[in-house]
């Protein structure tokens, strides 16, 4: 039985960029998100700011590429520049900025942007992940 393809720390390339397909944010998304989390929009017609951040990882899974073998999501440094409105169509862009080898795994830092239909960056910042090494498994 073959395992699905994944990306270990050794194969992460600094500088590689990805852009996801876009998704139109509807009132249904906002309602479901608010219902699950209890986090609400500051006013009608807007999405809760953290919802856009949550989409950044979800949209990333729609790119056909072997996913990183993430051991732990370590942190986020995030800026919110413009509100996300119901009806906006957003995509996520990411770029690998840094990789740093540790003893049994490695740290990978990615820059992420949430971009709307007009090309404006609504939110952006850095995600830090702890990623598994191939050699640690053997």
């Amino acid at each position: 039985m073959s395992s699905p393809a994944v990306t270990y720390f050794e194969d992460v390339e600094v500088g590689s960029r990805h852009e996801t397909p876009a998704m139109t944010v509807t009132q249904a998304h906002v309602n479901m998100y608010a219902g699950v989390t209890g986090d609400h929009a500051p006013e009608a017609g807007l999405a809760p700011p953290l919802f856009a951040l949550c989409l950044s990882t979800g949209l990333g899974w729609r790119i056909a590429r072997p996913p990183l073998v993430v051991i732990a999501f370590m942190g986020i440094d995030w800026k919110i520049e413009r509100p996300l409105r119901v009806g906006d169509t957003v995509r996520s862009r990411s770029q690998t900025m840094v990789k740093r080898s540790m003893r049994e795994a490695g740290v990978v830092v990615e820059e992420h942007q949430i971009v709307d239909q007009g090309g404006d960056v609504l939110q952006h910042g850095r995600f830090t992940f702890l990623v598994a090494k191939k050699e640690a498994l053997t």
Binding site: A34, F51, C54
Partner: peptide
């Protein structure tokens, strides 16, 4: 749980 689920839940909890 998703880390971002925890982040979202704490946001909702505090405002409640």
């Amino acid at each position: 749980a998703h880390g971002l689920l925890g982040l979202s839940i704490q946001s909702g909890l505090l405002t409640r």
